[in-house]
Amino acid sequence: MNALPRAVDLDLIGCRMCGLVCRNVPGNVKLDGDGVDDAMACPRCGSTLRRRKTNSYARTWALLIAGFLLYIPANVLPIMRTASLNDIDDNTIISGVVELWNNGSADLAVIVFTASIVVPMLKFLSLGMLLVSSQRGSDWARPQRARLYRLVEFIGYWSMLDVFVVALLTALVRFSVLSRVEPLPGVIFFGLTVVLTMLASMSFDPRLIWDGRSNDD
């Protein structure tokens, strides 16, 4: 017997909502959670008890790919238009970062670059890697992979930064013909990317990192 027993081995289930530890009736709830559960409810909070998040691999892949597809127009299309008397300027995410850098706000340029480019890319690569390695039942660098997942979960929502910047500037820069800011479609795609990648990291079940090959078949 392992010194660190897992709930699966002891036939226990922890309620994901309230944390209550419950004993499972053998064969009642499937390990992968992909099948139809026999609607076993937590006696304390009433949530459905599941050993693993439902359809974790399929859902995470779907949301991640959808998020990535929307991330392309989010970067290619302009997110914001600044119009003044004789000049119309469309900004993409990257051109906004460059502008901050050139205007002497290197620190903020780095923050925006991190939130809008590094964090989403880190999410796509990390979740993709976690999905592939867990689906293969790999035991490579498990503690590090677990930590990477927690990092992705923690930083994910900071990507919304640029969306709020565009929204604030749109609301404030309204000087009739002299100077105006308008939102452009890129910002909508970017907002949706952030939501989809957040949903993707929520539907991934970090316990799958530790499940290994033996549980797959």
Binding site: G19, P43, P206, I209
Partner: peptide, 26 residues
Amino acid sequence: TAARNTDCLHAHSSDALLICEHCDTV
């Protein structure tokens, strides 16, 4: 109905157990 399916441990061992949500260790 819940009692039929699950044997809830907190009733007798008073929340003695804790399961790691990230890796399922008890």
